[in-house]
Design a protein around this nucleic acid. Structure first.
Length: 879
RNA sequence: GGACGUUUAGCUCAGUUGGUAGAGCAUUCGCUUGACGUGCGAAGGGUCAGCGGUUCGAGUCCGUUAACGUCCACCA
């Protein structure tokens, strides 16, 4: 039956209903088919800290496009959703929330805090999943996971245990990055570098015995309280004689040695470096080599400790000022040189990180990095675009051991227990009841794991690993990983070495990397700047499909993209355009809603053959673009085809037949429905709701009822539907129509003024068949074809285009002198073009070296231009 | 200090095996055209950042310069 559609597309009315219907029909559930082809994507799990932003919207849209396309192609698709516990970030948010109530973690204790954290996870995790659904994401919700759920936690234990047993996880005292604000250690990847204003203080360290001093320079004078030596280069002549002497450390009563170490560069600063093993990674190494004591002078919250003497209790920056002032007072500060230098800051709270000696857990990276490098080098894993491989490789090749312990509560506890009575250290997959050696009670390590430790396992932990589940067997390794370039080091790299180490296989074959979404001014969207845009607001205003299409179009992989509402509005207009095309088709549907079968090839009119042929090409191009991960190009091609070729041309060309009724109308309608339906299928991955809604209102396809478009079969290129001859004929007709419109417009001929067209051409049959199109689309009252020597009318405008010369008798509007001038100008332009091509065709190099196809095309081009020039000359003579 | 990216119409950006430049928005002109004014038709607008090279031919490949941006880097 015919269905009436509203004049404008109202996304809010259809989206929820359609999403619900997909859920009811269980369309998203991944099935394992014996002998089937799996296609798997695991979602980059959004943090439970908040809500989705535009970057997520882009990420999810790209994944959904791939998944929906592969599903239609007949793959067993699995898009596995879930969220990440985001250890430090989430804990920081909860702590901040508690602070508003005047509470601290310690106030409420571990148990209560964890209860609170889980409540947080339920609340925000749920919100994020709702947002994912609003985006139209076709995730298999029955397989939803969380990085701290039972299964993922088991995988974490298993991995920790295995690495521990292999000696790839160890505990040790090392210099780590410490965030005094979050009060936890950080991995190298979690430290960002920012240029900040600072100073280079030159300080005198007097010799303990006798006169003289050594001048050292530092940017962190407060750490001098922890100095245990000064180092110079062994071959530095300036100091050679002094090495081994003792220095009096200013502001303290300690004496420290002057040592020689090749790490020092003679030509930087003063050539003498104060050595603070507890607060600098290099100094730590120097200290080791020389057996220097490690003297920690700071507390975990960035204050000075009891080792700092009178400065104990001061904030580290207060202390810096005090130390500088004291040195100055004692005449030991030689100079203060302002400088801008990079300091490490915490990636979550941007507090300046303090290098600090601390007992932490580490993953030994070297053995894990080797195969992870090889996998990318050898092409087992491919990055799109390719350039990100360099990024990845550089990082992988320069890895230091990964500090994985965090001094926070929200996260996976480290599965290691200590026996205080016999000193045993036990790592176990299951919580041990007591010490296996002496039976005493055990104490579990209080630390938790880096949040990325669990997300590194995401591609297989979510499929059931370490169990050998059917899902793991069928859907792993996953196919494509879609993510922003900002987390390649944090996440992608760690998934790669984890997958290789624990499953023996690369976790995915392709990494599709996208850029960041910026605001209209090109700034990064952020909460603090208040320039973030909530995807849900945009969806409410323009619809999900419009947002998705805007995000998928007009950018290339890996490049940042500015978000502009205008672009979404343009996509909304596109949706509305299609909606109205659908209305048009339905309007012409017979009462019983039946559509004739597609006409036999021989019965096709030129216009039908043209649009079928063009659509067939579109199928190939869109499919190829998707295969190559060129989603933006695919979307652009769909937009151009649907708006220009289908709506603006084919629909207009079909109107005479539709309005004429009868068999011709049925044939036109059959082609319209076929082409439109087939193209909607191609568009479905990009605009799932609109296409589903229209699909549901279109008459059933030949051969019976159809169900959801999302489960329909992806169109395939059909050799038998290529009609190059008809394409060329239509191209000539369209070109002529455009040329007539152009002339009329230039001359300000009102559309109401119709005029006869007199056409001289060597191919009259093309134009005769198109007479009705000239009448409808080019303001023609009638079309007369030259034949039998009929002369073109006087007082006419002449148009030379394609293979025809068209005269439009416009009587008093025609200024013959102006016509002559215009035609002469056109002739000059044509000849100029022609000369260019002739020069090319006359060149030996071109003829011998250019491919035959190109030469042939130029020859045809030249022939056409010659024909045009001749026609122009002829027209001018007759004028 | 390295590496990478960007530089194409007024604005935002496409342009993938090198073959005579495209879209959206904006601008100008015209239109109650029986799907759509969230529309239709037409127009203007680019020495594809500069220089050099390879090539019959370069926005596209190579080198180099400049501006902007990003990532990496323990020079105290």
């Amino acid at each position: 039956m015919k269905k009436e559609l509203a004049k404008q597309y109202e996304p809010s009315e259809v989206e929820a209903r359609i999403y619900q219907s997909w859920l009811e029909k269980d369309c998203f559930r991944a099935e394992r088919t014996p002998g089937g082809k799996p296609y798997t994507i695991v979602i980059p799990p959004p943090n439970v800290t908040g809500q989705l932003h535009m970057g997520h919207a882009l990420d999810e849209t790209l994944q959904d496009i791939l998944i929906r396309w592969r599903r239609m192609q007949g793959y067993d698709t699995l898009w596995l959703p879930g969220v990440d516990h985001a250890a430090i970030s989430t804990e920081a948010k909860i702590v901040a929330e508690m602070a508003q109530e005047g509470l601290t973690k310690e106030d409420i204790g571990y148990e209560k805090f964890m209860e609170r954290a889980w409540r947080w996870k339920e609340k925000y995790g749920g919100r994020i999943l709702a947002q994912l659904r609003a985006l139209g994401s076709s995730c298999d919700w029955s397989r939803e996971r969380f990085t701290m759920d039972e299964g993922c936690s088991r995988a974490v234990r298993e991995v920790f245990y295995n690495l521990y047993q292999k000696g790839l996880i160890y505990r040790g005292e090392r210099i780590i990055n410490w965030c005094p604000c979050c009060q936890t250690s950080l991995s190298d990847a979690e430290v960002e570098h920012e240029d900040r204003e600072g100073a280079f203080w030159h300080i005198r360290y007097p010799f303990a015995q006798g006169d003289g001093f050594i001048l050292v320079a530092t940017t962190r004078p407060e750490t001098m309280l922890g100095d245990t030596a000064v180092a110079v280069h062994p071959e530095d002549g300036r100091y050679a004689a002094q090495v081994g002497r003792m220095l009096r450390l200013p502001l303290t009563d300690r004496e420290i040695p002057l040592v020689a170490d090749a790490y020092v560069e003679t030509d930087f600063g003063t050539g003498a470096v104060k050595i603070t093993p507890a607060h600098d990674p290099n100094d730590f190494e120097v200290g080791r080599r020389h057996g220097l004591p490690v003297r920690n002078v700071m507390t975990e919250d960035g204050h000075m400790n009891e080792n700092a003497g009178i400065y104990a209790g001061m904030d580290r920056y207060e202390c810096r000022k005090a130390v500088v002032a004291a040195l100055e007072a004692q005449g030991l500060l030689l100079k203060t040189e302002p400088t801008r230098h990079a300091v490490g800051v915490c990636y979550r709270c941007r507090t300046v990180v303090e290098p600090r000696v601390s007992l932490q857990w580490f993953v030994k990276m070297q053995p894990l990095a080797v195969p992870a490098i090889a996998a990318v080098r050898e092409g087992t894993i491919r990055f799109v675009p390719e350039r990100f491989e360099k990024n990845y490789l550089r990082w992988m090749e320069n890895l230091r051991d990964w500090c994985i312990s965090r001094q926070i509560w929200w996260g996976h506890r480290i599965p290691v227990w200590y026996c205080d009575s016999c000193g045993a250290q036990i790592c176990a997959k299951e919580d041990p009841a007591g010490c296996p050696h002496c039976g005493a009670a055990l104490r579990q390590d209080p630390d938790t794991l880096d949040t990325w430790f669990s997300s590194a396992l995401w591609p297989f932990s979510t499929l059931g690993w370490p169990e050998k589940t059917s899902d793991l067997d069928y859907f792993y390794p996953t196919s494509t990983l879609v993510t922003g370039y900002d987390i390649i080091t944090f996440w992608v790299s760690r998934m790669i070495f984890s997958g290789l180490e624990h499953t023996g296989r690369a976790p995915f074959s392709t990494v599709l990397v996208h850029g960041l979404i910026r605001d209209a001014q090109g700034r990064k969207m952020s909460k603090s700047m208040g320039n973030g845009i909530d995807p849900l607001d945009i969806i409410a205003q323009y619809g999900t499909d419009a947002l998705r299409f805007a995000l998928a179009t007009g950018n290339s992989p890996g490049n940042d993209m500015r978000f502009s509402e205008e672009k979404v509005a343009a996509s909304r207009n596109f949706a509305n355009k299609l909606w109205n095309a659908a209305r048009f088709l339905l309007m012409h549907l017979p009462a019983d809603g039946a559509v004739a079968p597609l006409p036999e090839t021989l019965a096709l009119e030129d216009a039908d053959a043209w649009i079928l042929s063009r659509q067939n090409t579109l199928v190939r191009e869109v499919t190829e673009s998707l295969e190559a991960f060129e989603l933006g190009i695919a979307a652009q091609k769909l937009y151009d085809f649907l708006w220009d070729e289908f709506c603006d041309w084919y629909i207009e060309l079909s109107k005479p037949r539709l309005q004429g009724g009868g068999e011709a109308a049925g044939q036109a309608l059959a082609v319209l429905v076929f082409v439109f339906g087939r193209t909607l299928q191609l568009l479905h991955p990009f605009m799932p709701f609109l296409t589903e809604e229209i699909w549901g209102s279109l008459p059933r396809a030949q051969g019976g009822a159809h169900g959801s478009i999302m489960l329909s079969r992806w169109p395939e290129y059909d050799e038998s539907r290529c009609f190059p001859v008809q394409e060329a004929r239509l191209q000539a007709v369209m070109g002529a129509i455009r040329a007539v419109r152009n002339r009329r417009s230039e001359m300000n001929v009102p559309p109401s003024r119709r005029a006869k067209l007199f056409i001289e051409t060597a191919q009259p049959e093309i134009y005769a068949a198109a007479a009705v199109f000239f009448q409808r689309l080019a303001g023609a009252s009638a079309v007369e074809l030259a034949g039998g020597g009929a002369a073109p009318p006087k007082d006419a405008v002449r148009i030379v285009c394609g293979g025809a010369t068209i005269s439009i008798p416009l009587g008093e509007l025609v200024d013959l002198a102006a016509e002559r001038a215009r035609l002469e100008k056109e002739l000059a332009g044509t000849e100029k073009q022609l000369n260019g091509i002739r020069a090319k065709l006359g060149s030996e190099g071109f003829l011998s070296k250019a491919p035959a196809q190109v030469v042939q095309a130029q020859r045809e081009n030249a022939a056409q231009l010659e024909e045009k020039a001749a026609a122009l000359r002829e027209t001018l003579r007759a004028l």
